[in-house]
Design a binder for these strands. Sequence first.
DNA 1: CGCTTCTTTGAATTTCGTCAAAAGGCGTGG
DNA 2: CCACGCCTTTTGACGAAATTCAAAGAAGCG
Lengths: 238, 238
Amino acid sequence: MTSAIRDEAPAPEALRQMELFAGLPMEALTGVAAMARGRHLPRETRIFSQGDPGVRTHAVIAGGVRISQSGSDGAQIVVRFVGPGEMFGTVALFTDGRYPADAVTIAETFEASWSEADLRILMARYPQIAINMIRIIGTRLQEVQERVRELATQNAERRVAHAVLRLARQAGQAIGGGTAIAFPLRRKDMADIAGTTLHTASRILTGWTKQGLVASRNRRLIVLKPGDIQRIAEQANG
Amino acid sequence: MTSAIRDEAPAPEALRQMELFAGLPMEALTGVAAMARGRHLPRETRIFSQGDPGVRTHAVIAGGVRISQSGSDGAQIVVRFVGPGEMFGTVALFTDGRYPADAVTIAETFEASWSEADLRILMARYPQIAINMIRIIGTRLQEVQERVRELATQNAERRVAHAVLRLARQAGQAIGGGTAIAFPLRRKDMADIAGTTLHTASRILTGWTKQGLVASRNRRLIVLKPGDIQRIAEQANG
DNA sequence: CGCTTCTTTGAATTTCGTCAAAAGGCGTGG
DNA sequence: CCACGCCTTTTGACGAAATTCAAAGAAGCG
């Protein structure tokens, strides 16, 4: 199911919030908005698949998207979750013209996208856009690098702790006595994020639940004691 | 020891080979060369350290550089090795102004570097540079993502196999009956690249040596049967 | 030639993934 | 509203893989 519920251009004001277009004059934003394609998509809709040609750069205006990647051997990881104001599908831009991952909505979502050609025109006219893009990708690269170090050096519990903290920071909303992660997460998702199996992830999370560090309400994880989780994330192995 | 042996500006012709300045007119290259700072550095020289402020973008003209990262807990990984024509230190550009890793020469090296301010001027004048930069970082991001998947899903032997193949592709030179990796690698380096311990790396490599898949001559690894290594890299776990 | 650094190897231990199965939730359709 | 089936989560037992601990050999360097 890839059909849009309703199509419309995004508002220039919505673009102003986005890092890619930060620091642009209003007249530029109008031009950017004119080149955008906006789409409303229902939950669990595939936006693009690994290997698809004809790359566009996407941004979530509202809702959320899961980016995942599967290798030739079928093993899968979740690359990240994308929330409002964040870009996705930017990596393949100006490289090989194929998406390197799958993107699927995890809730009803309004997204905007631009073609590579249009973006090139915009960048030539407003170099600030290119610099913003470099900053965005550079930051992402650092984050992924961080993840590599985690995977290479830390045990499963620490990795899950990091993943939970990252999600809470990225998509946390305060609720009575804790921080809830906005979107529903299955144990399998947590496992794919932390680079472990759903069994290990389940064991760790139920352990924490029994200690009162976290709680789950209908698929949504609630962090009750961020300090304790932080301590787990930082403590040396063993 | 960070003292340069000898300083000089890089030749515009040397820049033409670099991906960052691909597709630029000669007159532009002259301008780029004028803004560069070139340095000759002896072996095992630290170019920058994790956390250093005042970020510049660097390129190796000749020689090689090891980029490594260590976490707050002391655990260390090798991010990558940088060879002639490749850039490094680009990630922090336009972000937080601090280097995210350590860079140390692994051989006598000639490197060039540009300040963030100069690069910004160059990009405003030649947007192609910005687009090249985006492509370079985007490609790197994909590679690192790949590594994340490897670490999350593959066992140590497969990861070492991937690491060896990557190095051979990047820095391999044909010698009698095999491909030698140009720079000296200790077991600890291999381990840090593959995300394991030097003990495990040693066991795996001596195993391969006994089977005749690889050989070592004074710290340099020689790949004798790339096909067999490839098979190990691709075979399912177990 | 002696010292330091790197590599190899063995044995014990631990972590984590695998196999297997039960229990819990949720929505659908009767 | 209840019963059924499907999907997810939990839990136990087991085994394989890799880290840790320990120490001996080998190689490079002054």
